[in-house]
Computed example of a mutant assay.
Amino acid sequence: MKKLLNDPADVVVEALAGMAAAHPDRLDVDLEHKLVLRAGGPVQGKVALVSGGGSGHEPMHGGYVGTGMLHAACCGEVFTSPVPDQILAATQAVDGGAGVLHIVKNYTGDIMNFEMAAEMAAEGGGAQVASVVTDDDVAVQDSAYTTGRRGVGVTVLLEKIVGAAAEEGRSLEECLALAQKVNGQGRSMGMALTSCTVPAAGKPTFELGEDEMELGIGIHGEAGRARVPLAPAREIAEDLLGPVVADLGLARGESVIAMVNGMGGTPLLELYLMYNEVHRILAAAGVTVARNLVGNYITSLEMAGCSVTLLRADDELVRLWDAPVDTPGLRWGV
């Protein structure tokens, strides 16, 4: 294992210390609770957005804390859910009196711990908390980590769109309804060319032959639909898009927000090549790409591979997507 580390046990805290040093103007980092918070404290009278999960998926979620997106991110150990006390501390730190929306990916540990934290926050007349669970991965119905579909790429799009709505001053109920709409209209599927190596494990999570790829992997390296022979990019794009388009029921004349996401170890040269294939397939189907993202947004350490996310778009979602955002991971309109 070759990684830029000191002690594997300290990787999360030391990375968070680096975020604090790199972005002192926009982030407050609580190293004790492993939280990334917006600088300046709670925004009074506006809904706050809290998300989080295991580390190793950067820039998600800490990189999406800032104006137009999250108010706080809870950082678990690598590929490990944050604990309830962390989530509670984040919820209390950002509550501006209008309620807090928890954005939770559909993994058993995340759901259990966010539910416990919400109950703790509500005790004694505390914060009003609502929760949305993302479950957009079409690859598998159930996995080793979930009951139902895994929460993956749509989480990024949801945090951006609902973050813009919260900036507008929408109520907790309105933000929750919008979050549910985004989750319901988005689907994702990913693939891997290589495994990743969790620092504490010191060896790859799984093995792939030189001429093999895994279709439908999760963001922790968990198995997908099938292990198949390596294929050209045009065929991979078809394998990923086919189930996504079918599950959404996309029809000619519709439009989408499309994300081609790198898993951490794939160069932009290849990701743009993959986006070209995705764009070509959608154009042939009469589907317009209203907006797009290409790059590393929800990663799996240094795994080579990519995922494709499509979100059925409408005027409201595109407007909220275009709204200003200023975070370490996404920035435009400011």
Results as ranks from 00 to 15, higher is better:
6 N>F: 12
9 A>Q: 14
10 D>V: 05
18 G>F: 08
23 H>F: 15
23 H>K: 03
28 D>L: 02
28 D>G: 01
32 E>S: 04
36 V>C: 02
41 G>F: 08
43 V>I: 14
44 Q>I: 11
45 G>S: 10
47 V>K: 04
50 V>M: 02
50 V>P: 00
53 G>A: 05
57 H>I: 09
58 E>F: 04
62 G>N: 04
68 G>H: 05
69 M>R: 11
72 A>G: 14
77 E>R: 12
80 T>V: 14
87 I>N: 01
89 A>N: 01
90 A>K: 00
94 V>G: 00
95 D>H: 09
104 V>R: 00
109 G>W: 05
110 D>H: 04
112 M>W: 09
116 M>G: 00
119 E>Y: 03
123 E>F: 12
126 G>R: 09
130 A>G: 05
134 T>S: 15
135 D>I: 00
137 D>M: 14
140 V>M: 15
140 V>Q: 15
140 V>P: 00
148 G>C: 12
148 G>P: 10
150 R>L: 12
154 V>T: 14
158 L>M: 11
158 L>D: 02
159 E>G: 00
161 I>K: 06
162 V>H: 02
167 E>S: 11
170 R>F: 03
175 C>P: 09
178 L>V: 12
178 L>W: 06
179 A>T: 04
184 G>K: 10
186 G>M: 03
186 G>C: 06
188 S>C: 11
196 C>Y: 00
198 V>Q: 03
198 V>W: 02
201 A>W: 14
218 G>K: 02
229 P>Q: 11
236 I>W: 00
239 D>A: 14
242 G>P: 01
243 P>W: 13
246 A>L: 08
250 L>V: 05
252 R>Q: 12
253 G>Q: 10
256 V>S: 08
258 A>W: 02
260 V>L: 09
262 G>Y: 07
262 G>T: 10
269 L>T: 14
272 Y>E: 08
273 L>K: 09
279 H>F: 07
286 G>A: 12
288 T>H: 07
289 V>L: 05
290 A>N: 09
291 R>I: 03
294 V>I: 11
297 Y>I: 05
309 T>V: 13
310 L>Y: 07
311 L>Y: 07
313 A>C: 13
316 E>F: 04
318 V>Q: 13
319 R>P: 04
324 P>Q: 11
327 T>A: 10
328 P>M: 06
330 L>P: 03
